[in-house]
Each structure stands twice: as structure tokens, then as C-alpha cells.
Amino acid sequence: MGGDSKYLGLAYVAPYIAGLLIFTAVPFVASFYLSFTDYSLMRPPQWSGLENYTELFTRDRTFRKSLSVTLLYVFMTVPLKLIFALFIAYILNYRLKFINFFRTAYYVPSILGGSIAVAVLWRYIFADAGLVNMAITAFGGEPVNWFGDPGNALFTITLLRLWQFGSAMVIFLAALQSIDKTLYEAAAIDGAGKWHTFVYITLPLITPVIFFNLIMQMVQAFQEFNGPYVITEGGPLKSTYLLPLYIYEEAFKKFHMGYASAIAWVMFAIIMVLTLIAFWSSRHWVYYAGDKRS
């Protein structure tokens, strides 16, 4: 739109710029600063250098436990969820009748999954005498101590996330449906079997979407709060005490704002490193076929 001032566009994005500065950029820098201070709301922040970080990495056993639980949770949840979402999307993408019905049914848990009501439901169905154990005993199995046993509790929380594979699945399904059918026909003429077609045609073509889902799911998984907070309250024996719970308690229960910021920054650094690894490695495995924009 030629006659307009080149600053007109800025007027439209002005709310975003203001919001970015006030609610993201300044807090981002401030929290980095706070992580080097001793700040408990009673008195102004006192510069304490690397004290918070030294405490975290040398003396704080809760942090060590929380960090290892978080990493275990992320490395368990993200791959399982992506594989399951892709598997179901692959089955759905097959000229089936009722495809929309199934897609909707699988998507429902993603809509409700983050809610407290579903966390409550999880508490009840995985209780000692809950629905899941009733089903297991009905089939002659031994009831499982889902939440009481530190070895199981994190897995039970993971199941809650897996249950919400629908959003990732919808994205996979859309990508599968956009693959050019002639490629499959060509592969069939060349005598490729289903497995080969999947590995050499389908997978490479949807790598951009796998990459997108991988990053988004990872960032989300690191921030899981509602599930463990409501279902297990971090227990038993801190086996579900994910970092966001630790940050929340340090910051908003004990008001150790400086220390909590340091934990947040360690977590942020880990997410950044993993994201950068993903971006760096994507050059070798993500394939942009239809990239005509560049």
C-alpha cells in the first residue's frame, strides 16, 4: 500500500511492542539479575554474586532430586507422546470412514487435559481402589500402587500427558494428508512395501512437523505443574517434584525470589541448550520439500 508512511505498520504492532517490553523483555532481564541476589521481599535485593548457583549445584539436594525427576519426566513423556501421536495419525490417514469422529474423540483429552478437573479424575481412577485397579483385578492381575510407590508415581503423571496426545496427532494428521498421493503411487509401482514407503517417503516429508511438535512438546513438558501439584503434591519422597513445583514453592510460598529465579534460569538454560541442539541437528534430518518461499 504505497502512499502510507513506512511507520504506519508500527502503529498496528505497537501493542505487541509495548507488551513485549513490559511483560517479557524487562522481566526476562530482571529475573536474570534477581538470580544473583538474595531477595526475600522483606528487604530490597542484595547482590550475592554466584551464591545462589553455588548453593544449587553443591549443597541443595532437593534441587538435584527435582532436576533429575524433571529430566526423566521430559525424556519419558516427549518421545512416547510423539510416537503415539504419529502412530494414531498414520492409522487414521487411510481413507477410513468416521475419520472425523475418531479425530474428535482423540482430541477431547487435549482440550480438557490441563484442567484441574482432569487432575482430580486422575487421582480417583489411579487410587488404590480406583477404576484402573478395579479393571486390573477384574482381569486377574495384582492391583498397582500408582501414587504411593515412588517408582510408579512419575509414570502415572506421564500417563496423564500421554493421554493428551490429540493436539500433536491433529498436527501430524494434517501433515500426512498434505503429502502428494502420486509419490505413494510411484513408490508402489517401484514395488516398495508399506514399511519402506513409510520410512523413505512419509517420514522425511513430515520431518518439519516432527521438529515443530518436538520443540513445542519439550518446552511444555518442562513446565508441567498442574498434574503433579494436584495429584501427588510432588510426592511420594519427591518422586514427582518437578522443577516448576520447586520454583513455585521457593518463590510464592517461601518468597525466596532470588533463589527461585536462579532455579528458573537453570531450567531455562537447559531448555535453551536442548532447543539449540534440536535446531542445529535439524539441518541433518529435517527436510523442507515445498519450501518455495525462500
Binding site: 517479557t24 522481566p27 534477581l34 518446552v219 516448576p244 528458573a264
Partner: peptide, 9 residues
Amino acid sequence: LPNVVTRIP
């Protein structure tokens, strides 16, 4: 960007 980083400020 994880919200955790900006939440306290």
C-alpha cells in the same frame, strides 16, 4: 520462551 523465567518479575 518458557513462562517460568518471566513469572517472578
